Simulated assay, not measured.
Amino acid sequence: MTGTIKSSPNGGSVDETANSDAQYNFTVKYNITTTTQSFKFRKVSATQIQWNSSGSWVDLVKM
C-alpha cells in the first residue's frame, strides 16, 4: 500500500511506527487533501487476522 500511495500523482505518506508480530497499525495521509485514514490489524493465528472497523474487531480468515 505504501508504494501505491507514494506513486500516486499527488502522493502522500504512511506512518507504520506502532507495529509488532501480533499487531500492525498504519496511518495514511494524502498530500492533496486533509484526509487521514488509520488502519489496525492484529494476528490471531496463521490463517486468521482481525481488522478494527469503527472500534470493533472483525475476523478476516484465509480461505
Rank of each mutant, 00 (worst) to 15 (best):
residue 14 V to S: 05
residue 23 Q to R: 13
residue 26 F to A: 01
residue 3 G to F: 06
residue 22 A to C: 00
residue 27 T to S: 12
residue 51 W to E: 12
residue 26 F to T: 01
residue 18 A to S: 14
residue 26 F to K: 04
residue 30 Y to V: 02
residue 57 W to L: 06
residue 58 V to E: 05
residue 27 T to M: 07
residue 20 S to L: 03
residue 12 G to T: 07
residue 27 T to V: 13
residue 47 T to K: 14
residue 13 S to A: 11
residue 58 V to G: 01
residue 39 F to A: 04
residue 26 F to H: 08
residue 45 S to V: 07
residue 9 P to K: 11
residue 12 G to W: 08
residue 57 W to E: 03
residue 54 S to K: 15
residue 49 I to W: 07
residue 53 S to K: 11
residue 10 N to T: 14
residue 34 T to H: 03
residue 63 M to L: 11
residue 54 S to F: 04
residue 18 A to T: 09
residue 11 G to M: 07
residue 17 T to C: 04
residue 25 N to T: 11
residue 29 K to P: 02
residue 24 Y to R: 09
residue 45 S to Q: 06
residue 42 R to V: 01
residue 59 D to K: 01
residue 3 G to R: 09
residue 25 N to G: 05
residue 10 N to H: 11
residue 38 S to P: 00
residue 33 T to H: 05
residue 31 N to K: 08
residue 51 W to R: 06
residue 51 W to S: 07
residue 56 S to D: 13
residue 59 D to Y: 07
residue 62 K to T: 12
residue 40 K to L: 00
residue 35 T to R: 09
residue 37 Q to T: 05
residue 10 N to S: 13
residue 17 T to I: 04
residue 53 S to P: 00
residue 7 S to M: 11
residue 10 N to W: 11
residue 4 T to A: 11
residue 47 T to M: 13
residue 5 I to V: 15
residue 32 I to P: 00
residue 59 D to R: 03
residue 5 I to T: 12
